[in-house]
């Protein structure tokens, strides 16, 4: 059974058609060309497909496309303000918080959710807050530092 779903993605009203058992991740990638949403596992274990659904951090591989009806979605493509990068994006670049970059969209979305909830996280809070996102390249060191630096900048301390 195909469903027509109306939803809001990165501020835009969108419509898409999906199968009843199709994940939101597949719908975002294949029906709306938002390939910044990455599939690393499809089972919620890597966080590469992280999005905000009504402001809540979720793995889009564990949400059905059908569930998005009437809800608000934010993906990595919606993080920057026009050509102005979000402080997290800027700090990820400056701190080399990415090597291969496949996990980066998920980390950015998760880190954004973390800082919105907790603008002054400790290192431990950052580490636990990002534990749902796997990175195999960096050993997380530079990711944690980038998030710390972004927090400082967002709090206007720099």
């Amino acid at each position: 059974m195909s469903l027509l779903i109306e939803t809001t993605v990165n501020g835009d009203q969108r419509e898409f058609v999906c199968e009843a058992d199709e994940t939101l991740m597949d719908a975002l990638r294949n029906r709306m060309s938002l390939t910044g949403v990455k599939e690393g596992c499809g089972t919620g274990d890597c966080g590469a497909c992280s999005i905000l659904l009504d402001g809540e951090l979720v793995c889009s591989c564990l949400v059905l496309g059908a569930e998005a009806a009437g809800r608000t979605i934010e993906t990595v493509e919606g993080i920057s303000d026009g050509d102005e990068l979000h402080p997290l994006q800027q700090k990820f670049l400056e701190h080399a918080a990415l090597q291969c970059g496949i996990c980066t969209p998920g980390f950015l979305v998760a880190a954004k959710a973390l800082l919105e909830r907790n603008p002054n996280p400790t290192e431990e809070e950052i580490r636990y807050g990002l534990a749902g996102n796997l990175c195999r390249c960096t050993g997380y060191d530079k990711i944690v530092r980038a998030v710390q630096a972004a927090a400082v900048e967002m709090n206007g301390e720099s």
Binding site: G44, G47, S50, L53, L57, V58, C59, A110, L114, G132
Partner: peptide
């Protein structure tokens, strides 16, 4: 139960 992402669901 799971990460923050899982917790949201």
């Amino acid at each position: 139960i799971g990460s923050d992402q899982i917790q949201g669901r």
